[in-house]
């Protein structure tokens, strides 16, 4: 068994999930008592490759090509397919990024393999590898095994392994260039510049207290219930994605993978189920409190304080209780 991790970057900077994935790779390589390689693709990426080589890998592969200077699903698929042909890895780990969502399953299918996404844990027992992933938006875990041939393709969920603790070592792993051939006509899509809809006027990242409201609030006319609590606490109001999609609160108050990342002292989640795309934006909070009527809501897996109940009763009562304490 040999393990390959595909590292991701954009605009000369690492994608944070690359490190989480590298730690996952180190963990599984140790379990399998095998070598770990890492792959980086792009153009003008020597500095990144050199940095990767100091992070506890046995080898770094570099696939450089002008046509890889920006991401394209066609370009990445073709390039990684060629790398796989050359280095024959048995297990390939990707970060579960938006890019990987876009090309990972396509690449696997091209090699007639399935792809397993959002893996949160890997175990090895008697040479059988079991991968844990979540179903039903985080409500359920499942252990999965592959029945197709090697190589296996998996992506690692953000934060499942702690890449932020990874320190460079003094050792440099060998860096090996792999020539890839890509024809301009292979790339069927033209990608425009990245942009943001509007400059956000609300910076939730520095807020100390955040009251965040989810779809459980049911109707925009109930938003004041959450707003009242935020005001009583002297905090900012935030929301999960469906609340912003529906226009109940502006997009600039959205927390999660496609919104803002916050790390307040207190994050109070009201009527939010705790889907991973929300959780990645707020799990860095010092204390998390959740009010939800469903005892099985995944938000309770990460909450310090929980009330299982109807938010329409609990939130007004909590607002009153807080105002009373503040008056004392």
């Amino acid at each position: 068994m040999s393990v390959l991790v595909v590292a991701e970057h954009h605009g000369g900077k690492w994608h944070k999930m690359s490190w989480d994935t590298l730690v996952a790779g180190q963990t599984v390589a140790a379990l399998l008592k095998t070598e770990l390689s890492a792959l980086i693709l792009g153009a003008q990426i020597e500095p990144l490759a050199a940095e990767l080589a100091t992070h506890r890998v046995d080898r770094v592969f570099v696939a450089e090509h002008e046509l890889l200077s920006e991401y394209s699903s066609d370009g990445y698929t073709i390039a990684i397919q060629q790398v796989i042909g050359r280095v024959s890895p048995d297990l390939i780990l990707f970060p579960h990024s938006y890019f990987v969502r876009d090309y990972g399953p396509k690449l696997a299918a091209r090699l007639n393999r399935s792809f397993l996404n959002d893996v949160i844990d890997i175990n090895v027992k008697e040479n059988c590898i079991r991968f844990t992933r979540q179903l039903f938006q985080g409500k359920i875990n499942a252990d999965v095994t592959f029945s197709d041939d090697l190589p296996h393709f998996i992506s690692i969920q953000s934060g499942a392994y702690r890449g932020d603790t990874l320190e460079p070592t003094g050792n440099f792993a060998p860096v090996e260039k792999i020539d890839v051939t890509i024809d301009p006509t292979d790339i069927r899509t033209r990608y425009g510049e990245w942009f943001r809809e509007s400059k956000s006027k609300v910076d939730l990242s520095s807020a100390e207290i955040i009251v965040s409201v989810g779809r459980g609030i049911k109707d925009p006319k109930h938003i004041p219930i959450a707003k009242g609590l935020a005001e009583a606490l002297g905090g900012e109001l935030a929301a999960s994605r469906p609340v912003c999609d529906n226009g109940w609160l502006p997009l600039e108050r959205q927390v999660g993978s496609s919104g803002q990342t916050v790390s307040p002292k207190l994050y109070l989640a009201i009527g939010i189920s705790g889907a991973i795309q929300h959780v990645v934006g707020m799990k860095g909070a010092e204390k998390i409190a959740a009010i939800n009527q469903d005892a099985g809501a995944p938000i309770f897996e990460i909450a310090d304080y929980g009330i299982i109940g109807d938010l329409f009763e609990v939130v007004p009562a909590l607002t009153e209780a807080i105002l009373a304490i503040k008056e004392d």
Partner: peptide, 19 residues
């Protein structure tokens, strides 16, 4: 191509104090 060996409730990562 993949088999789910078992389904289960996710383990809690934090000790939640429920009120």
């Amino acid at each position: 191509s993949q088999t789910i060996e078992n389904f289960y409730a996710p383990p809690k990562t934090k000790e939640t104090q429920f009120f």
